[in-house]
Amino acid sequence: MAPLIDEVPGQARDVVVRASKLDLTFQTNDGPVHALKGVDLDIHAGDFVSFIGPSGCGKTTFLRCVAALETPTGGSLTVNGMTPDEARRARAYGYVFQAAGLYPWRTIARNIALPLEIMGYSKADQKDRIERVLSLVDLEGFGGKFPWQLSGGMQQRASIARALAFDADILLMDEPFGALDEIVRDRLNEELLKLWDRTGKTIGFVTHSIPEAVYLSTKIVVMSPRPGRITDVIDSTLPKERPLEIRDSPEFIEIAHRVREGLRAGHVED
């Protein structure tokens, strides 16, 4: 299937992820759990899409469906015009988990080399790419260190570098900064935006934090639980250039307000 073209005038970009009427029901001992119900969503090339919502709203599940780590039970989902599993086998995306998940027995450089080894890149190519992504996440000179010698924030940066090392156009991030303190988080948010700007990747980003979602995204997907569904999709009006101070601007506060409203609306229906 050829990539679908979005029909918004002046914004003719490829659809990277297209979900329609997506359902996912887990069968548990307490009966079926509707993790996702009737989810419709398009993600375009170059988008930075945040998924926000309370626990159990299916935001991580949706990301895992895109990554073919879960299999939907209904509806359709395409990634780069393929089924998610084909996209996974075509190595279409890099995935960043909540924990850095670096192998403790590998140095940072060798951790970044892991996907490259698996995908069969040449030694010389591996070396170049490791250098490049280390500088992309500001970890030059740390390639020879073991993970335990790095702080939590640096470990998470290394895991982002690992996801960037191969040529996937999509970056899926599941609460990558959830375990970090606010100060480190701010800094990594700023760096992530720069990185997104430089690489032009399409990013799917799961978060619990309203300011984080508003600050980072071009599109914010507000979700609510039981059943997991989308309650609002907000296209950000913030400029692409975003200093941290933008979080005090009226525009930012307005979007944050709308996100909060969306979250509350989801809760009222409970």
Binding site: A67, A68, L69, R88, R89, A90, R91, Y93, G94, Y95, F97, A99, G101, Y103, W105, L114, P115, E117, I118, M119
Partner: peptide, 23 residues
């Protein structure tokens, strides 16, 4: 999570053994 990570790389079973499980 570590097994999922290898899945996202579409790693083969033997790669999972040599690179993750064995070490």
């Amino acid at each position: 999570m570590q097994l999922d990570l290898l899945r996202t790389y579409a790693a083969s079973g033997s790669q999972g053994f040599w690179k993750l499980r064995l070490p």
